[in-house]
Design a protein around this nucleic acid. Sequence first.
DNA 1: GATAAAATGCAATGCAGTTGCACATGCTTA
DNA 2: TAAGCATGTGCAACTGCATTGCATTTTATC
Lengths: 137, 137
Amino acid sequence: MVKELETDLLAKGIRPTAMRLLVLDYLLKQSAAVSLNDLETYFLKADRITLYRTLKKFEDKGIVHKIEDGTSSVKYALCPESCYGMAYCDLHLHFYCTQCQNTFCLPKTRIPELQLPENYQPEEISLTVKGKCSNCS
Amino acid sequence: MVKELETDLLAKGIRPTAMRLLVLDYLLKQSAAVSLNDLETYFLKADRITLYRTLKKFEDKGIVHKIEDGTSSVKYALCPESCYGMAYCDLHLHFYCTQCQNTFCLPKTRIPELQLPENYQPEEISLTVKGKCSNCS
DNA sequence: GATAAAATGCAATGCAGTTGCACATGCTTA
DNA sequence: TAAGCATGTGCAACTGCATTGCATTTTATC
């Protein structure tokens, strides 16, 4: 099991340190996006900065993607397997539940085609929906 | 002219103080969304906190709406005339130009219908596109 | 003009993200 | 296996921005 995580990290060019394996394992078990604070709360013994840099590294290497859901804190979620170079990640939306305050990736909900005004050239799209998630509605 | 701005503010239940009239006048002249920092830079003599509270008040009363464009600073833009109770404002998208770093409201570009997974109930939608605006492309 | 309510200005706080630096750990090569 | 280098970690401190408390000033009302 841990072996698998190790090879996952190595495959992305990330040294599989103890902390990183723990964080990756944790991320794999979450259904909602994770903030730095969540990590801090879960890994009480770990250093905040290390967790911060772990997320940064994961983002850099394309293991997780950043989500700005309109709350004060940035969140991260594992990229879907098929996510290469963020191109795919840009195409799904994020759902922030106003009740349980979780943020969910909805990779199966693609962002529909947009008709921008003339000469506006899109490079990246971010779509966040607020409301009640399936557990809370 | 100032008289008009005054009645605008009064109509929304906002006392038309000198500062507020100046800020409103400034907002009316902008094509891009405005951050607190922009206001500070423009009104050198004014107090940062006052400007902050002015924007808050305007937002409260439905004169401007808040825009989180993914940059570190929150921006504000005047609501279109037809904007009542944010319902309308939720339906248009915001465009952040990576070159001139301005954020534009595109009220004429409506957000297409979304097909959310079962039991997800949307209340608010935020759609931000990054790319090159019509001036920079 | 007197009074109460609201706005303003200053100081200070809080929070999340970020950086610098010293130390520890892991990897590579001789 | 030991030496040496690159990388990761932990602590402290800083930054930028949002926000609040409080005393003072301004505005609306009578």
